[in-house]
């Protein structure tokens, strides 16, 4: 092959790859949907009965700023609470706001826990916010959220 021909061929390849992103938009619509498709907004409304949740410094949400991989992202939530019969954390909900099913985990506590804390690991399909919605025993809802950058890193 002559050098010039090679570049011509390369040109075609480049042209095709320039079109490819547009095609992948079309493919997105046909993406498989999981069994529990549910958006964060809808879930939040259902859980709080439309009241919504108030961001609070009492909710300590810990997630990595950058996740090494989307398959295992550590998440921990701790809520300041005396955990007595009169005043305790009823439920902590964890959401991956942009996942197909945004709901990850709901933990229902009792005063017997002694401390309102949970830690787990979630899968993230893309860069997004992780949100924690906390239901207190008095019926109020608190929240915290933080963004996690998901990278495709490393080798293999």
């Amino acid at each position: 092959m002559k050098r010039r021909d090679f570049f011509k061929k390369l040109g075609t390849v480049v042209a095709i790859s320039a079109v490819a992103p547009m095609m992948s938009f079309g493919a997105d619509e046909k993406k498989a949907k999981g069994p529990n498709e549910l958006s964060y907004e809808k879930a939040l409304e259902a859980i709080t009965n439309g009241k919504g949740a108030k961001p609070s410094a009492k909710v300590h949400l810990k997630v990595p700023e950058i996740a090494e991989n989307g398959a295992v992202v550590p998440v921990s939530v701790e809520v300041d609470s005396p955990m007595t019969e009169q005043d305790y954390v009823k439920t902590i909900h964890i959401f991956a706001t942009k996942n197909n099913n945004s709901r990850c985990l709901a933990v229902h506590f009792t005063p017997a826990n002694g401390k309102a804390m949970l830690a787990t690991r979630v899968k993230l399909g893309s860069t997004q916010d992780i949100a924690a919605i906390v239901e207190m025993s008095d019926g109020t809802f608190l929240s915290a959220s933080q963004s996690v950058k998901v990278t495709i890193g490393g080798c293999g």
Partner: peptide, 29 residues
């Protein structure tokens, strides 16, 4: 379930990582 009393329950969905880990606290009684 701790000595017959349910101390914590969880609803779990598919977004948790494979081979999941759940960490909570509990008061020894």
């Amino acid at each position: 379930d701790y000595n017959g009393a349910v101390i914590t329950t969880m609803n779990v969905w598919e977004s948790l990582s494979a081979n999941p880990v759940f960490t909570i606290y509990m008061k020894i009684n």
